[in-house]
């Protein structure tokens, strides 16, 4: 490709780094991202908060007997009651994702990161892996604890409760975990795409979580079919513990649509990341 420049011959006198044999590898970037993650205290606080919210609200909601309907509102199923905290954890994790993705742009750290890993994509992919590795176990343990403790409290108070072995229950529990993690990953990807924490949060929380409900209220009924394919509505198809959901998307279709959204956002971010100036 490039012509061999005779000036290169003077290389004999040039310095050779003692780390010349240390190669940049994907696994080393994984390690680098792990060091970055664990050395920021707020990451751990956010994970702990997520855990406490899911387990805490699960116990609280199961313990407080609203059977009389004092506060008004529809009677919620035992499943929804023990997973009350998940609704709040969706917000926490979506915001966490946005902050996690945009953080290095806010601090300028991204220049150090992309100078060390000039191809950029290994940094993005490792952030996805690391975020999942940190958030998934937290959600998994919290959701199953909330379900187990919550249902035993309800049962003790004489309410008929679902069991893990009942149809669709396990799938709905895993569906909830997957949904929250997925929104966090969308937040992360959008954070890197837009490079600003506030914008990332606005898009993820506003655009993904609240916009579908707003559109549903505003748009004519003929549009509602299309709205079912938005991420949050698609998520609703596989987070509910019943075979036929209120959405017309089946749980499987909902899951596929949701994954397609995540992959789409990842692809957009990857493309932008490789093409643009840092």
């Amino acid at each position: 490709m490039s012509t061999v420049n005779p000036v290169n011959q003077e290389k004999s006198s040039s310095y050779t780094s003692r780390f010349r044999d240390n190669k940049l590898t994907f696994l080393r970037v994984t390690n680098s991202e792990w060091i970055k993650f664990r050395s920021i205290r707020s990451n751990w606080i956010t994970l702990a908060l997520t855990f406490l919210v899911i387990v805490g609200f699960g116990i609280l909601s199961a313990s407080i007997n609203r059977g009389g309907g004092g506060g008004g509102g529809e009677v919620r199923s035992p499943f929804d009651r023990v997973l009350t905290g998940v609704n709040l954890s969706v917000l926490i994790i979506a915001v966490f994702g946005g902050v996690f993705g945009a953080r290095e742009y806010g601090s300028g750290m991204i220049k150090s990161s992309f100078s060390a890993v000039p191809r950029r994509l290994p940094v993005f992919f490792n952030k996805i892996i690391l975020f999942s590795k940190a958030v998934f176990p937290t959600l998994l343990i919290a959701v199953f604890l909330a379900f187990t403790i919550g249902t035993s409290i309800l049962k003790h108070n004489g309410t008929a409760v679902p069991k893990l072995g009942d149809p669709f229950i396990l799938r709905a529990l895993l569906g909830n975990i997957f949904y929250v993690l997925g929104l966090g990953l969308i937040g992360l990807s959008v954070g890197i795409l837009v490079r600003q924490t506030a914008v990332a949060i606005a898009i993820t929380v506003g655009g993904v979580l609240f916009l579908p409900a707003l559109l549903g209220a505003v748009l004519p009924n003929s549009w509602h079919k299309a709205l079912e394919y938005l991420p949050s509505n698609a998520g609703g198809a596989f987070t509910a513990p019943n075979g036929v959901s209120i959405n017309s998307l089946s749980p499987t279709t909902g899951g596929i649509v949701f994954i397609a959204w995540i992959i789409g956002v990842f692809a957009l971010t990857s493309f932008s990341l490789v093409k643009r100036d840092v």
Binding site: S32, E33, I35, K36, S39, I40, R41, S42, R103, E104, S107, G108, M109, I110, K111, S112, S113, A116
Partner: peptide, 15 residues
């Protein structure tokens, strides 16, 4: 080009 929440040592470790 440094994350303010991280120590100098951890910054260099990560890079």
């Amino acid at each position: 080009s440094v994350d303010k929440g991280r120590s100098a040592y951890n910054h260099l470790r990560a890079v």
